[in-house]
Design a protein around this nucleic acid. Sequence first.
DNA 1: ACAAAAGTGTTTTGAGTACACCCATGA
DNA 2: TCATGGGTGTACTCAAAACACTTTTGT
Lengths: 227, 227
Amino acid sequence: MQHIKLAVDAVVFGYQNEALYLLCVKQKYGPFANSWVLPGGLVKDNESIQDAVKRELEEETSVELDYLEQLYTFGDDVERDPRGRVVTVAYLGLVDPGRLHIQADTDALEVKWFLLKDLPELGYDHQSIVDKGLERLRAKIHYEPIGFDLLGKEFFFSELEGLYRTITNRELDRRNFRKKILSFELLEDLGVFPSNGRGRPGKKYRFREDRYKELVAKGFHFEIKYV
Amino acid sequence: MQHIKLAVDAVVFGYQNEALYLLCVKQKYGPFANSWVLPGGLVKDNESIQDAVKRELEEETSVELDYLEQLYTFGDDVERDPRGRVVTVAYLGLVDPGRLHIQADTDALEVKWFLLKDLPELGYDHQSIVDKGLERLRAKIHYEPIGFDLLGKEFFFSELEGLYRTITNRELDRRNFRKKILSFELLEDLGVFPSNGRGRPGKKYRFREDRYKELVAKGFHFEIKYV
DNA sequence: ACAAAAGTGTTTTGAGTACACCCATGA
DNA sequence: TCATGGGTGTACTCAAAACACTTTTGT
């Protein structure tokens, strides 16, 4: 008879003002009570693992995702949970800035977005799960248009630039970057919007999800080498 | 109390004569008795999931791997095993041609390498696991030097060409491919060997694993766009 | 008028691609 | 001598990279 528990955990990133944020919850019980950890929990017998992630996120944080993918399964360290053998399937989630400021904690658990650069010490092996998630995000932003899930539906071009600068942690040439992105013809031009600070007002854009899918079906491959 | 079992399964590919092979075992008991399935089985309480894969491969097939990586965790279909909830962590394995012909079945299970193009109907959802494995192999061969794990330690250049042709299922320009691969300076030239058939004899090469790691540490990125 | 951010084009460079002939061996 | 497979070099093309000034707004 096997005594292994199966859990899910979610690495959920948000982005605002040139900075990445990570969604954490404060553990109430157990060996890491009062530590910050990733949202997650045990999978139920009759739910898919993906549904388990969504349910836990809903229960613990009330956050809905704009993007979700399976990340990696952590089960090589037999003692990663001091209470017994737990294998966890980690997911990577992304949310747009509209969800970045939590409404109210659902069930008395504390929930918080931490600046990724300023994370507290996380319980269990959750820091290594976060590392894996960040690695995936960094890799994938070059060859899939997942960055758009970290922006609002409508965004200034400079926000997209800032997002790529932040995630890749490198400078980029604004002219070349814009030329490349626009060449895909995946952005709908929404026209000029009042500047939100000083400086010349800029155009807003919307990512054309439908068009992206069409193009992919025809063999198109999103790729940003820049940055 | 949770009633989910945790298993591992391995998609193990081999390559020989311009063809990919998949390692299968014949199921002895259960709902898929006498079906061919992927090698695998339940994880033990005190072993890492990666060790579980290696153990099952050893027990069921006596095959040792030249490459192993975690592939994906299949647990969304609650009824993927008719006997109850089983979530399986699938791994992708590669072996060199020296291991392609099985020595003897360890414990009366039947073991067989099938031509990938000519697979029998596999039990459970194993066909979709194979599909995922093949997808990963096809993607990864472009940006990591994992193809070498499907060749012997010493190989003719034409074998490498054939491997890429086979896996990508496309023609390639021999001159450009050779130029590109050699430009990495990752192959040790072992000199000319007697031809194994008719035609001019060719040089053999060895992949410089150590050098590859050095280069990666310096920021090198293996990439074959060709093919 | 000045500071701040947005918008825009051209040139250079190098990697990807296309392409065809000679060489060494076994039969 | 012929069939088979191995080895090699050059020219073209296009996308990536480098690069700086003008425009619009708020203060």
